[in-house]
């Protein structure tokens, strides 16, 4: 029978489903506000908005955009983040229980820094992945679908343009995320060595000073730090590209959408208002698309952590090796323990 892991990458919970729906609602409100802003500009361009009629329209826009921003803060931002924090700590608690329960012969395979990394960093990375796949991704997909529906309501061609724009985000994110993932996997041993050296420095400080080995310890820590710094530089560049490119390319995608719609306007198929709507909705594409692309990079970059936690789970489930030595019953006359043979290190 297949063992059910304590460290899944997706969890189906009602609370997570509600968070995903709430996240989409925030985007729907923002899309509505964006369309209202677009229609305002469109009306101005058409000369349909005078100094007296503009006030109610602007107040309506203000109320709608305020509601959208509050929903974005509460539903799209804070609730998933809170779920994330809870899941991170939950993973850490599961990991510490596994460390406590694992047999000694499995435990000695790694240094203390490895386990500290698991119960702190890796557990947090796992919590982050679970919440990303279970709330952020469904929420972002719902948001994306809602925006395309809105665009289609304005002009079906606009929906097509936006769908193409959304696709632009995919290579922008996936290519650097692969590099980030590769670099992070290779950087992990340097990070562990650095953390381990810090721990060693603190633990053995008194003995190091007593042995007059301050220089040795200081030099070793500097070497570990430099090695970690070199790897971090490359990783950080790839990570910045994978996390920032989707959001930073928002203006570029908006301009692409405007260019496409301007061609439609030039051919007389639509009005200037569509250009504004295209700009606004293309701007909103960034959030769900960056969630989705970020998810790919978050998953790729942190997959190694999930692997480490599952390895911990396997090692914790290993038999201690003493089971066959423990008798279920023993005669009273024999001693509690007897040994015969050779002990090897």
């Amino acid at each position: 029978m297949r063992h059910r892991t304590q460290f899944p990458i997706f969890e189906l919970r009602p609370s997570y489903a509600l968070i995903a729906l709430g996240s989409a609602l925030g985007t729907v409100l923002a899309a509505t506000a964006a369309l209202v802003a677009g229609s305002l500009v469109s009306d101005v361009a058409a000369g349909a908005l005078g100094t007296t009629t503009a006030a109610p329209a602007l107040l309506g826009y203000l109320a709608l955009s305020l509601a959208a921003q509050l929903a974005t803060f509460g539903l799209t931002g804070w609730l998933p983040q809170r779920a994330n924090l809870r899941r991170e700590v939950d993973s850490s608690e599961r990991a510490i229980d596994l460390v406590l329960h694992m047999p000694q012969r499995a435990f000695v395979r790694h240094e203390a820094g490895h386990y500290l990394n698991l119960v702190n960093m890796a557990s947090f990375a796992h919590g982050c992945i679970v919440v990303a796949t279970s709330t952020y991704v469904p929420g972002a997909m719902l948001s994306l679908a809602a925006q395309l529906v809105f665009a289609a309501l304005v002009d079906p061609t606009l929906a097509g343009v936006l769908a193409l724009c959304a696709l632009v985000y995919v290579p922008l994110s996936l290519l650097p995320s692969r590099a980030a993932n590769r670099l992070q996997t290779r950087m992990m041993p340097m990070r562990e060595a650095w953390l381990d050296e810090a721990r060693r420095l603190v633990e053995e400080r008194r003995a190091a000073v007593a042995a007059g080995a301050e220089g040795f310890y200081g030099r070793r820590y500097r070497e570990r730090t430099e090695s970690y710094r070199r790897w971090r530089r490359g990783y950080l560049l790839a990570d910045t590209l994978s996390t920032s490119l989707p959001t930073s390319s928002g203006t570029l995608v908006q301009v692409i959408a405007v260019v496409a719609c301007a061609l439609l306007v030039a051919t007389g198929r639509t009005g200037v208002g569509t250009v504004i709507a295209a700009w606004q909705l293309a701007g909103l594409l960034g959030q769900p698309m960056s969630f989705l692309c970020e998810m790919a990079s978050v998953f790729a970059a942190n997959r190694v952590n999930v692997g480490l936690l599952r390895e911990l789970e396997r090692e914790a489930a290993e038999p201690s090796g003493f089971e066959r030595l423990r008798r279920t019953s023993r005669p009273c006359a024999v001693p509690s323990a007897s040994t015969e043979g050779a002990i090897h290190a």
Binding site: L236, T240, L241, T243, S244, S248, S249, T251, L252
Partner: peptide, 11 residues
């Protein structure tokens, strides 16, 4: 602007 935002603004 995209290149500047990624490199100068984030990295």
């Amino acid at each position: 602007a995209t290149a500047a935002a990624v490199l100068l603004g984030a990295w």
